[in-house]
């Protein structure tokens, strides 16, 4: 299973953080810091896999891609194939690129919820459910259309709002 997905800047600032196996909240910052220290010490043009037993527990590995000012990190265990997860990172990056038209860090910073929507279309409960970038794009666009439609409706007051007021 995929245990975690992280997107962080080359300054170590987390831009996206999703855990699929339980990690106590007070540990999240240490996990980010640990992964960042590992990655920032690695030169370019070396392999994209790192064993992270010390950080995430026995058998854990991570695969990462360093693109411009961002690290895209997927942490996984022995039930995943290294190269397959590397391909998945590529799919994720491609999808972001399509959604934001030549994605850069600012797009990541200002689209917190959309990022999670894209990720949720790919992975559910740590299991990969979609590996096609095109299919993910279609789902995200449909969700956006539905939400826009719902926003239009919300302009009309409804009695249901009054029910929740104190």
């Amino acid at each position: 299973m995929i245990q975690a997905v992280m997107v962080m800047s080359t300054q170590g600032k987390p831009r996206l953080l999703k855990f699929y196996s339980y990690q106590p909240p007070e540990k999240h910052q240490d996990l980010v810091r640990g992964v960042f220290q590992l990655l920032s010490a690695r030169p370019d043009s070396v392999s994209n896999f790192v064993k992270v037993d010390a950080i995430f527990g026995p058998g854990a590995k991570l695969v990462y891609k360093h693109l411009a000012t961002l690290y895209f990190v997927f942490v996984f265990d022995s039930s995943e194939n290294e190269l397959a997860v590397l391909d998945l990172v590529q799919v994720f990056v491609e999808t972001l690129d399509r959604c934001f038209k030549n994605v850069c860090e600012l797009d990541i910073v200002f689209n917190f919820n959309k990022l999670h929507t894209i990720l949720d279309e790919m992975i559910l409960g740590g299991q990969v459910i979609e590996t096609s970038s095109e299919q993910i794009m279609r789902s995200v666009e449909e969700i956006a259309r539905l939400e826009k439609q719902s926003n239009t409706t919300s302009l009309i007051p409804k009695s249901i709002s009054e029910r929740f007021s104190r």
């Binding site: 919820n113 539905l146 939400e147 719902s150 926003n151 409706t153 409804k158 249901i160």
Partner: peptide
Amino acid sequence: ELIASPQLPHRRLAYLAASLSLH
């Protein structure tokens, strides 16, 4: 509270908040 909202955007936000809350 919000996952029961009739507004889809509100429910999406609520479900995300619930799934990320590990405290």
